[in-house]
Design a protein around this nucleic acid. Structure first.
Length: 587
RNA sequence: GCGCCCGUAGCUCAGCUGGAUAGAGUACUGCCCUCCGAAGGCAGGGGUCACAAGUUCGAAUCUUGUCGGGCGCGCCA
């Protein structure tokens, strides 16, 4: 509806002779907005104030001339000038009734825009290292990314979701070594590492589970004593990296490269499977799981680097190969090939993003943790150096999550492996509340996640408030049958003019805002707008519910009222579906 | 030191692509179930939009500075 009004204004402006020569007009889009105060009508534009100076006339006078040129429309009842020069539009009943009819015919697909061909968006999110289970921070990424994907799709963008699996590099060796140590332990070998386990190793309980499940046939027996003899006596205080490297070297030496690799691979598969299940249960699906290892196996890193070299973007220094990131605005140049001949994680990332563009995606949308912000400039530099526009990479940074229980902050320590996992969180508060709470706040805002509130089945909980509205509508329709009343949708639409109560008009108006919310939330990558909107919608519904009875003897009035709440139900269901939250028929 | 994010009601936060009297939840106070689900509704009090200057018809919103909080500045991933 907003676009219809904007179109009217555009036509009126295009007709103004005094604006024909004003050069800046083309860059000044009409701004049609919903009003905050109902007395100002339904929509408002400040265009007259914005153009007044260029044209050299007073805002209110210009507004007058714009209004005179507005094409006639059945959507608009009244247009007036207000305040310093706002043009306010009052929607006609016809406009709202048409919109409501559109809701009922589209059902919960209402508000979805027609899918366009481009830009093709590649949405990458979570991409947590496959070295352990997902924790509550990853949960926010998952919920935000999945919801954003749904929103972009609803807004008509072709979007694919991808999880980048960091299945290469040193951390996989650490994973393999950690599992192997637990295997020895389970074989009854006492291996004392001073602090009981290498500090740089993965010490979570899940490592024991993985170790227990690994096929041991054919593995050489090694005593704890023999292993220790190959390692530095104690783990040095400040050098945990060196120590874990020694453990890895010993493991490869004792087991042989193939067998060590087998352990590593089985561990990776086990963790990936767990992550996949976890996300699947959380309603978070990916179109593709993209392996970092495949980048080197398929020579994509070499390809990207040689292209950079051809473009004279690389140079040698201190035995390493550097990328001229500073040429593209980064703080310093970055190493892509280390002195030891191995390429860096950054080199993989250049190759990965290059590959994304080569696969035909126009817009690369990465969801990253706030601690990765320093990384954005260099990846963008890499893309630019390879000949792509820097703007084709968009990064949304998600801030951290802090868990609270009964007002107490919960400590999360990855070091000890005693973090709260996403799975634990989901089991405690349920998927609906988790999905909802994760996207309830703006993603660039720190999130205080209150476990008690999310869990509470009371009126404190905003999830239930919205779901309750949906269940209530469903309940009304159930009652209808029990009371032997008919429900005729056609008649309902035909009789919408019977709805003259304030609460009815407010609900109609709020329902009609839904497509605008979808667009706004998608454009700003801000699912929380949808959350707030659904809360408003539920509020309007509950208010209406309390003020009037829907199941009345008057057939026309009853059908009209039922049509209205049916429309509200569709929008709530559609909105909740985008959030990944269920819309129950009863609670 | 440099860079990014943030500072709005007691608490948790919207509003930030400049607009009309700064909003919501929660907490607090009072009211509403012989009536489709009270997991609901209605009403009330509560603000130096961190601070200061600037830009302009107009600033919570844009710019600069100050103060306060979070994060990042590896030949780690």
């Amino acid at each position: 509806m907003k676009s219809s009004i904007a179109k009217l204004v555009d036509q009126a402006i295009a007709d103004l002779p005094e604006l024909a020569d004003a050069p800046e007009v083309s860059s000044t889009r009409t701004t049609v907005e919903r009003t905050r105060d109902p007395r100002h009508g339904d929509f408002s534009t400040n265009i007259a104030m914005r153009l007044a100076r260029q044209v050299g006339s007073k805002p209110r006078e210009l507004a007058d001339r714009i209004i005179a040129r507005l094409p006639a429309s059945e959507l608009v009842d009244k247009v007036e000038i207000a305040g310093p020069g706002f043009i306010n539009f009052h929607l006609s009943e016809t406009a709202l009734h048409q919109e409501l009819a559109a809701v009922l015919s589209a059902g919960s697909a209402y508000g979805r825009q027609h899918t366009r061909k481009e830009p093709r968006i590649l949405l990458e999110f979570v991409s947590a290292n496959p070295t352990g289970p997902l924790h509550v921070g990853h949960g926010r990424h998952a919920a935000y990314g999945a919801t954003l994907g749904n929103l972009l799709e609803a807004a008509g963008f072709p979007v694919e979701r991808e999880y980048y699996v960091n299945d290469d590099g040193h951390q996989m060796d650490i994973l393999g070594a950690s599992v192997w140590l637990r295997m020895l332990e389970q074989n009854g070998e006492t291996v004392s590492f001073g602090e009981s386990f290498p500090r740089a190793g993965y010490r979570g309980e899940y490592i024991r589970d993985i170790a227990a499940a690994i096929d041991r046939s054919g593995l050489p027996i090694v005593s704890g004593a023999e292993l220790l003899s190959r390692l530095p006596r104690d783990e040095p205080e400040g050098d945990k990296e060196e120590y874990i490297s020694a453990v890895i070297a010993a493991a490869v030496d004792i087991l042989g490269p193939e067998r060590f690799d087998a352990i590593r691979r089985q561990s990776l598969e086990s963790i990936l499977l767990d992550i996949r299940d976890d996300l699947g249960e959380f309603g978070v699906e990916f179109d593709r799981w993209y392996s970092e290892r495949s980048l080197s196996v398929d020579s994509r890193i070499d390809e990207a680097l040689s292209l950079l070299k051809k473009r004279k973007m690389l140079y040698e220094k201190d035995g390493a190969t550097w990328f001229r990131a500073t040429d593209y605005g980064d703080e310093k140049d970055r190493v892509v090939v280390r002195e030891n001949g191995k390429s860096t994680y950054f080199a993989s990332d250049i190759a990965y993003h290059y590959d994304k563009r080569q696969r035909g995606f126009d817009h690369l949308l990465d969801i990253l943790g706030a601690d990765h912000h320093g990384y954005v400039a260099r990846v963008r530099a890499g893309l630019e150096a390879l000949g792509f526009a820097g703007e084709s990479l968009e990064v949304e940074l998600v801030q951290f999550v802090t868990l609270y229980r009964a007002g107490e902050k919960l400590a999360m320590s990855t070091r000890s492996g005693e973090f709260v996992t996403l799975r634990q969180l989901r089991e405690e508060v349920g998927n609906d509340a988790a999905r909802f709470f994760y996207v309830m706040r703006s993603h660039d805002q720190h999130l205080d996640f209150d476990l008690e509130l999310a869990k509470s089945r009371s009126n404190d909980n905003p999830v239930y408030y919205i779901q309750y509205a949906h269940a209530r509508v469903a309940s009304v329709f159930r009652q209808l049958g029990e009371k032997n009343f008919d429900w005729d949708g056609e008649s309902g639409i035909a009789n919408l003019a019977r709805l003259q109560e304030t609460h009815e008009k407010a609900l109609m108006s709020t329902v009609s805002r839904y497509p605008e919310i979808i667009e706004l939330a998608a454009e700003n990558r801000a699912p929380h707008h949808l959350v707030h909107y659904l809360r408003d919608l539920a509020n309007d519904f509950h208010t209406y519910y309390n003020a009037h009875t829907f199941i009345v003897d008057d057939d026309d009035l009853r059908n009209a009222r039922l049509a209205l709440i049916d429309a509200a139900r569709h929008v709530i269901a559609g909105g909740l579906a985008i959030l990944g939250v269920s819309a129950p028929e009863s609670m």
